[in-house]
Design a protein around this nucleic acid. Structure first.
Length: 793
DNA sequence: AGAACAGAGGTTTTT
DNA sequence: CCTCTGTTCT
């Protein structure tokens, strides 16, 4: 093969690198998949490596599929021998074989985010924790963090809690872990963590896989988290034939534990490593690439590099602000309709899934075929999860979560009371799960209708034992009369749900065709449990694509619209506080820009509905920051308003700077005399301050922004409302929830994002207590309500 | 046990 | 605004 003619110098160098570690720093659009696939082909054809010894890891199933396809094109006769999989599916495959070592049954279930929440809700109930005080997702994210760092959860639980709240969190985690074990279930994070533990505790097992996978390739390495790094490290340790590809500028998964350091310090983990930089971009025109370079150059923490292209021509990139998000959506969709491109060549990208709705409405209105990728996951839909739960309990008899989900769907008159009896009886038998306890319903004390229904339910399960896999879904639908139950919701709804079930059936059918006799129910469930909606998308149909920026990673389109470039939305309001978060948002912007091949349009809408109320938003600072020569900008009315303007608009007064001074003095004075406790006051309790970018009236419902919510306090140390208006302090930053915990006025506290602060007031706001804290971080004063992320010092 | 009602809370991003 | 949760009533 004349690789030299197909690849450029650097690509060639990377593809034909021999033994030893290799780091490929591949900029956006620099042909990294090409390099990876050719490298695989090179190893097999030129180096005589057996395909069996190659492991390629990607981030999504879709990417895995694409790589498989492209490798197959190069090596049609060696299909299927190479392991191309995601981290999760790789670990799953290994665990299915080896998890016996860790004391699990190999028929374990996999719990997705919803299942995790279900379990955590049970935990809260059992520990009698009020979900006002602690949020399920807070505990789950704490746990996820531990797991993603590759720490052993049992070690973590041995540590002393840092405070009261932390103690509660740990108690929840302990019980959660017990429950998962009881249910013979693993969550997503467990798949990785257990696999790592397996390798560490059983050297023989590790060695087996080290021997097997002599050559390892990892794509999107910048988004690996610590466990993933360890897995790679362990597997590659012996032979050091590890090749990773990534771009630190495209690291956008920090929120789920991705650690950019993994790629930045790869060279120190694998000392004799060869580094290849791919900087020539083959995707985008010069103006697009130019904008991308300007944007990403603002980030401090990155490896220096500059993409270039031979493609000098190209349409200039433009930015347009619209009156409202609705008009923005309309203009974009009309633009798509009138463009000379086919629909499938055009994509609209946005920051949050919620933004898809306006666009969808416009597509319907203008009759444009569209496809929303992501959002509500197919596999998380109620009807799909129901059917899958029926299937799950046939495989894993310990899966109480699945059983509870469907034992009364459709309604059978088996309620909470009956389940409790069953559960208790099962426990008395020595750890019987609910499914295992079903035959003992009578002994457990059930009677009447519930008893007979449990009996027939159990017979039904029994009768499914010998049903052919291909007929199973139909049988379930038939025996449970599931469709009848759906009808209750309404005919249209039922129809679409049945369509989804048919799609699942189709999925099962093609699974059976692919796997033949090898296919089993448990293997099917396993495959399905790791699929996401992104994997379902078919980008070859002639429809425009709507998706989040995260979903767009790794894809490219001739024409791209980046919508919703409003401060508070993108960059997101919750990620503007630390430089790291801001940089990550900017990388996301960069990823968006670099998806475009020929044309790129940036847009914003001034007014948009947030929580049912209109908010007027500023143009994103990401747009403001770009000099005119790189981006043609059309603001609607004016440039970004000054602080003075904002103050004017809100208060109708001038003299912002003297006001600011006065305000600062007042705060200082207050902090100085903070031993005089007891002040309380409810201010601004209308609480719709969502985004920091909101600065007031759009003429519609601005009153809530600085409106009349009563300030009632006997002592009135601060004119808090005024401070809010002046933008010195903020209240109601989302992500912090209200509740009650033992804080007192004057306590020093620390917050994960804002650093140290002092409890300023504890207010009684209807039912909930609100803890209000004044933070003084990096010279900026911030007011927060709630305590979810607070630690007492 | 189940339906009907009221109220609170919630929006990043995903394997 | 819309969805999910908890409560009350049958």
């Amino acid at each position: 093969m004349e690789l030299k003619n197909i690849l450029n110098k650097e690509q060639y160098e990377a593809a034909t690198h021999g033994e030893g570690p290799l780091l490929i720093l591949a900029g956006a659009g620099s042909g990294k998949t090409r390099v990876l696939t050719h490298r695989i082909a090179y190893l097999i054809l030129e180096k005589g490596i057996s395909p069996y010894q190659i492991l390629a890891i990607t981030f999504t199933n879709k990417a895995a599929q694409e790589m498989r396809d492209r490798v197959n094109q190069l090596l049609p006769e060696r299909q299927g021998e190479i392991w191309v999989s995601t981290f999760h599916s790789m670990c799953l495959r290994i665990l299915r074989r080896e998890i016996g070592n860790l004391g699990y049954d190999s028929d374990f279930s996999i719990y997705d985010t919803d299942d995790q929440k279900t379990v955590m809700r049970q935990v809260f109930k059992e520990l009698q924790i009020d979900s006002k005080m602690l949020k399920e997702r807070l505990v789950l994210s704490a746990l996820s963090q531990v797991k993603n760092q590759g720490r052993s959860v049992s070690d973590y639980l041995l540590e002393d809690p840092e405070d009261f709240l932390d103690g509660k969190i740990r108690a929840c985690i302990r019980l959660y872990e017990e429950k998962l074990k009881q249910n013979n279930a693993l969550d997503f994070d467990d798949l990785l963590l257990r696999c790592k533990e397996l390798f560490e505790k059983f050297p023989a097992v590790l060695e087996k896989y080290q021997e097997r996978f002599r050559y390892i390739l990892v794509d999107e390495y910048q988004d690996t988290n610590d466990v993933q790094f360890h897995l790679v490290y362990l597997l590659a340790k012996k032979y050091q034939n590890i090749c990773v590809v990534g771009d630190d500028d495209q690291s956008i998964y920090r929120f789920r534990g991705a650690n950019v350091e993994n790629i930045l310090s790869f060279e120190s983990h694998f000392p004799n490593c060869k580094v290849v930089k791919l900087e020539q971009n083959y995707r985008s025109t010069a103006p697009i690439l130019d904008l991308a370079n300007v944007v990403i150059a603002e980030n401090q923490h990155r490896k220096q590099k500059k993409l270039w292209t031979a493609e000098k021509e190209g349409l200039k990139v433009s930015f347009q602000e619209y009156e409202s998000a609705k008009e923005e959506a309309a203009a974009v969709i009309r633009g798509i309709r009138d463009a000379g491109w086919s629909y499938k060549d055009q994509a609209v990208l946005y920051r949050t899934n919620a933004q898809s709705r306006l666009l969808e409405e416009q597509c319907i209105h203008w009759n444009i075929p569209y496809q929303i990728v992501g959002g509500v996951n197919f596999y998380q839909r109620k009807e799909i999860k129901d059917i899958l739960s029926y299937m799950k309990i046939l495989v894993n008899k310990k899966d109480d979560v699945a059983l509870r989900r469907i034992i009364n769907v459709p309604k059978r008159g088996i309620g909470e009371a009956s389940l409790l009896k069953l559960q208790q009886y099962g426990e008395s038998l020595g750890g019987f799960s609910l499914v295992e306890s079903l035959p003992f319903a009578k002994a457990a004390g059930l009677s009447g209708k519930a008893l007979s229904m449990v009996g027939s339910f159990q017979e039904m399960l029994e009768s499914w034992k010998d049903v052919e896999l291909s007929a199973l879904i139909d049988r379930i639908l038939q025996d449970t009369e599931y469709e009848k139950d759906l009808q209750a919701e309404g005919a249209i709804e039922a129809e679409s749900r049945m369509e989804n079930i048919q799609e699942l059936q189709g999925k099962l059918q093609s699974y059976i065709e692919e796997n033949g006799d090898e296919g089993s129910l448990s293997a099917f469930l396993e495959e399905v449990s790791l699929l996401s909606d992104l994997d379902r998308s078919d980008l070859t149909e002639d429809k425009i694509t709507l998706m989040t920026l995260h979903g767009a990673k790794g894809l490219e389109f001739p024409v791209v619209y980046l919508v919703g470039l409003n401060e508070g939305l993108f960059p997101s309001a919750q990620s503007m506080f630390t430089p790291e978060e801001r940089e990550e948002e900017r990388r996301l912007f960069y990823v968006g820009i670099t998806r475009a091949e020929k044309e790129l349009y940036l847009t914003a809408g001034r007014d948009r509905v947030v929580h049912g109320q209109y908010q007027s938003m500023l143009v994103s600072s990401f747009v403001d920051d770009v000099p005119e020569e790189h981006l043609e900008k059309k603001y609607l009315y004016r440039k970004k308003p000054s602080e003075e303007d904002i103050f004017m608009e809100k208060t109708g007064r001038s003299g912002y700077s003297s006001y600011l001074q006065q305000a600062n003095q007042s705060i200082k004075a207050y902090m100085g005399q903070s031993d005089s406790y007891g002040s309380s006051g409810s201010y601004g309790s209308s609480g719709s301050y969502g985004s920091t970018g909101a600065y007031g009236s759009s003429g519609r419902s601005s009153s809530n922004l600085y409106g009349s919510a009563g300030y009632s306090s006997s002592k009135k140390p601060l004119d808090l409302q005024a401070y809010q208006q002046a933008g010195i302090i903020q209240k109601g930053i989302s992500g912090m929830s209200s509740g009650s915990l033992d804080y007192q006025v004057g306590d020093r506290v620390s917050h994960t994002k804002f650093g140290e602060g002092e409890v300023l007031a504890i207010e009684e706001d209807k039912k909930d207590k609100l803890v209000t804290v004044l933070f003084d971080t990096a010279g900026q004063k911030k007011m927060l309500a709630g305590f979810a992320k607070l630690k007492k010092l």
